[in-house]
Amino acid sequence: MHSESLKILLVVGALAAIAVVVPNTNSFLILLATRALAFAILVMSVDILLGYTGLPSLGQAAYLGVGAYMTAILATKYQFGLGYDFWLVVVFGILGGAALAAVFGLLAIRASGVYFLMITLALGQCVWGLAYRWNSLTGGDNGINLRERPKFGLDLSNEVTFFYVVFACFAVSLLLMYTLVRSPFGRSLAGIRERELRMKILGYNTWLHKYIAFIIAGAFGGLSGVLWAHTAGIVSPENVVLTTSVDALLMAVLGGAGTLIGGVIGSFIVFGLREYLSTIVPWWQYVLGIVYILTILYLPTGLMGIPERIRQRRASAQRRNDAKKLAPAAS
């Protein structure tokens, strides 16, 4: 239990550092961190499925899309969600993501492994197709521009205030998801990941467990979408396209699946590379591609798995040393 509380302390410390340091930097870095935090909620929702339930989702952008489009359409068509009712939109976004996941889950949860990957891809493409083609509602290829951020006591058009709002939403999400995966429910999800048949034999309704996990992931995806819409100021089919789902999945793997916080690290690294490196060098995407490939080849447990690997290497080196010392004595 000691190392667990140390880890929590480390995470809290790192987050506190972000909350203190980022607002004192320039607006470029503040926006970058805001984006990374908003997207990190989506990546963590992918991790709930991939890391804790063993379901690789390749259509998670759909839920971000629902939240984002809902926010944009309510704001531009009905002037709704630009005052205190912003928090209502947050609730709607969460419910919208959950509702979509409840529908999609009925289809997707039957499959597992690569088949789950493909069915979530197909479902994600359905949402993309609607966003791209349903001009009268979504603005088609051009998307929807949000002209202003909400104002209610707090003025969210102030980048630092907005950063803190996103940060707060992120922190609450992290806490909720952490509680979830540590709960008995989360434990049984991990059991399903390891060996579904055994869980079934033990009397667990594995379908229902996976279905609920899928809906919860969708709800957080919706929340991420609401925040993303106001962060980016524009919602377009780009947000629900296949590559966005791929990004979310790869960020989770890069940081380390099944760790939650790994997805956050992955999100920060990728957004950092993409938005910071791209201003310095033209070949930034090579770096991103190579980082992905090297991670998958050599670090299947992601960046969060590095300490564990070092420990194992040390332990095995230790064993080898002990064996050497013992060998002469034995002969």
């Binding site: 790869l250 995407q285 991103l288 591609g289 190579i290 992905y292 490939i293 998958i296």
Partner: peptide, 9 residues
């Protein structure tokens, strides 16, 4: 996942 990495490259 590896094939996606290559797709980006």
């Amino acid at each position: 996942l590896l094939t996606v990495g290559f797709a980006f490259l």
